[in-house]
Structure formats: C-alpha cells, structure tokens
C-alpha cells in the first residue's frame, strides 16, 4: 500500500473520532433528562421513556442512521451525513448513557439523599452537590467501556457517506484491491483509539474500587 493511500486512510481518523466523541458528548448530556424521566414518579413519563429506551436499543444502529438520514433528509429538510450520523448515534448513546446513569444512581446508598434532606439541602442542591457527582464518579468506568462500543457503532456513519476510517478503508480497497493490507491497517487504527480508552476505563475502575473498599 502506497504512502498516499495510507494518508487517505488516516484522513478518516478525525471523522471516526468526531462521530464517536460527538455522539458520546450528546449522549452524556441528553442521557441526564432521559434518566430523570425514566425514574419519574409520573407514570406516563416513566412508561414513555421505558418504551423509547427499548425501541432505540432494539433497532440496529445502521437502521437509525438510515432513518434519520433518508427520512429526515428526503421528507423534511436536507441534512448532511455528519450531522445525521451525530443525531442518530447520539440518540442511541443518550438512551444507553441514561441506563448507565440509572445503574450508577441505584449504586448510591439511599442514606446519602436522606442525610442531604435531614441537613435541609434543597432538592436541586441535593441533586447537584450530592447525587450527581457520585453518579458521575461511579459511571466513569462504564462510560469509557461504552465509548469503545460506540466507536464501533460509529462505523455505520460510513454507510451514509461520512468519510471516516471505515469509509476510507473501503475506498482505498476498491482502488487498490489490497483489501487485506488496507483493512488490516484500518483495524489497527481502531485498536489504536480503543486501547487508551480501555486503559482509562481500567484505571478509573480500579481507583473507584480502591476508594469504595476502605
């Protein structure tokens, strides 16, 4: 494989990172309201979130990406591949992040909220100062692990024309017929992004375990 072709492959890297971390950030933010509605006392809000979460999770990412891109793109307004990918994969990330947060919330002893209530902290301060930081802390290792899964899901963005690693891999393969080498490099580049994230997940998990064990 020529140097030029390798550079073409590399040019896909920023898109893969952008879709992955863009979707992760969208998910991290919108996951909060989704989780809050999911645990709401109001039956209709809770139920509609249960349905939404099940729906989003049970349809493959590639279908969502096509749905957003073609359905919105043709029926409502023209949409570029990158924003379409960010919206659809970000939505998938949001429901998954909501479930990660919900697990984190369940892991927090009810005594924390009770202590905050007994000290007369307002609901908002109890959430902001006591509950949310602890949920974030216990969620970090899971979020990092999820980010790796999300990166793999993000490859479907290539199917609607986001020029990411997978897209460039296929493009170079079609030009050179050197599928084995090219896709081997593509795989290695994915590994190169995953490894530091996996390492971070492990370190943060160990740190959490050490803190909880004392």
């Amino acid at each position: 494989m020529s140097w030029e072709n390798f550079l073409i492959l590399l040019s896909g890297l920023p898109y893969t990172i952008a879709v992955t971390f863009g979707a992760l950030i969208i998910g991290a933010i919108f996951g909060i309201p989704v989780m809050m509605l999911r645990i709401s006392n109001v039956w209709i809000l809770r139920t509609s979130m249960i349905v939404l979460i099940a729906l989003v999770r049970s349809v493959p990412p590639i279908v969502w990406v096509f749905l957003i891109f073609f359905a919105i793109g043709t029926a409502i307004f023209p949409i570029e591949p990158l924003p379409a990918a960010l919206i659809s994969i970000g939505a998938i990330a949001a429901v998954n992040m909501a479930e990660i947060y919900r697990g984190g919330l369940a892991a927090i002893h009810h005594g924390q909220a009770e202590a905050a209530v007994a000290l007369n902290l307002s609901k908002w301060h109890t959430f902001k100062d006591i509950i949310a930081p602890q949920v974030m802390r216990v969620s970090v290792p899971l979020v990092a692990t999820y980010a790796i899964g999300l990166m793999k899901d993000a490859a479907v963005a290539s199917t609607i024309g986001v020029p990411d690693l997978s897209y460039q891999g296929r493009y170079v393969t079609e030009m050179t017929y050197e599928g084995l080498t090219v896709m081997g490099f593509v795989g290695l580049l994915y590994v190169a992004i995953s490894l530091p994230v996996a390492w971070f997940s492990r370190v943060s998990y160990n740190r959490l375990k050490r803190k909880a064990a004392v």
């Binding site: 005594g111 009770e114 007994a118 006591i130």
Partner: peptide, 11 residues
C-alpha cells in the same frame, strides 16, 4: 440528625 451509617458524603 445522626444516622446509624453516618452517611458522610464520600466525594
């Protein structure tokens, strides 16, 4: 109020 399990904020 003082609780059986202290309930200090660990973070």
């Amino acid at each position: 109020m003082v609780f059986q399990h202290f309930n200090l904020f660990p973070h």
